[in-house]
Design a protein around this nucleic acid. Structure first.
Lengths: 213, 213
DNA sequence: CATTTACGATACGGGGCCGTCTCGTATCGT
DNA sequence: ACGATACGAGACGGCCCCGTATCGTAAATG
């Protein structure tokens, strides 16, 4: 008896299998178009297929529409980012690593363009924003939260700040994120991360302790 | 720009004068559409005219195209923002006023939506971004620079930080700006500005030297 | 009054994208 | 070999927008 609703997952494909390289090529093309300045409104299924050198029907065979395609594109964004390692070194070194990661992402055209484009769409398509947030942003913030809690545990961070970890993360990331996202063309030379870390640790007020005059 | 060869300012217009209310209505409509989530790519001259209840030819009579119209729209953004007053109070109070201004702008749908939309377009249309930067952003940063220099003069801000005023401004604005722009839905209750100011002034490290647990 | 320009509405040809469909060819399992 | 499916290419009707032009009406000058 050959039940048509066969529960086994190996639903034998019958004809020519889909070429996985085609799907990758389309996603890569969309990432390139966004990096080149296209907003989601600028992207068209027809234009994507043309830019990818792919038949339009092939794109529609894989994705129902632009939103479904963009969801897969978002999932591919963070595939290239190894999670930062906080193994050895002082808390200040770890903090510097985190800030440096933001700086380098700001220099990466694809990452920063994607973030800016997503920001413009977060009101329009909250599902897309949620996907970007969950797959890209949340992971980074979680890693930073672990770092900051470690800092509080070893006394490098004022413990009362743990009451609002989200705000603490905004504070640690905000300076470099503003610089890379809002201020296109702002200097992003290497030494800047050091100064940002100094500001994050010590603030702008003169230190009351027996430090530098 | 409708003065062919009349050097005197009283170039007598001959027919029915343009209704200034129509121009205002169009600009206001575009601002509303952007606040409702439209990106620049979503906006069309035809749709704008329809939403404004205005003839399409009337829009084209005033602006050559979408870019020219958007330039005027940008110029209208900051018309509603009174410049902040730094008259009395401590430096901390002034800083709180500045941070509070960012928080309130983040709550204003029109302002934050415009900023997010502009970010997505800054690569695509640098002229538009320059206009937005010059008419909106530069003024706020200049006011903040004056505040920070005042703070250094009275000893409330470490003077060596004046070496990179742009970075200093990024640091002061970055936390609240990140929260209002990147993190839609994040809490923006009133007390938060106080905590941000504390972080800006004192940083995250314990102030009384290296405390050993 | 006549003239001139603005206004809202709408019609016009042109062009791009939509989503589907049909080709001819290619590549799989049977 | 054969059927089934994927592939690139492109045709197709439909829709929306572009920028201009043409209505009839309204409001200013002379």
């Amino acid at each position: 008896m050959n039940a048509p609703e066969a529960p086994d997952t190996t639903a034998v494909p019958r004809g020519r299998p889909r070429d996985a390289a085609v799907g990758r090529k389309v996603v890569e093309t969309v990432l390139r178009l966004i990096a080149d300045g296209a907003t989601f409104g600028d992207l068209t299924m027809e234009g994507i297929a043309r830019a990818a050198g792919v038949g339009k029907a092939t794109v529609y065979r894989r994705w129902n529409g632009k939103d479904a395609l963009l969801l897969d594109v978002l999932a591919a964004v963070d595939c290239f980012e190894p999670p930062p390692r906080f193994t050895a070194g002082s808390f200040r070194d770890h903090l510097l690593t985190a800030v440096e990661a933001i700086r380098r992402r700001g220099l990466a055209k694809r990452e920063s363009a994607m973030l800016r484009t997503m920001l413009g769409q977060m009101q329009n398509s909250p599902e897309l924003w949620k996907a970007y947030h969950d797959t890209v942003i949340a992971k980074r913030r979680a890693a930073l939260a672990r770092l900051l809690e470690h800092g509080m545990a070893i006394g490098a961070v004022r413990p009362e700040l743990g009451a609002d970890m989200e705000l603490l993360i905004d504070f640690v990331t905000g300076t470099m994120l503003s610089r890379t996202t809002f201020r296109q063309g702002a200097s992003l030379d290497e030494g800047i991360s050091e100064r940002v870390v100094d500001l994050i640790l010590n603030g702008i007020a003169p230190s009351a302790g027996p430090a530098e005059p």
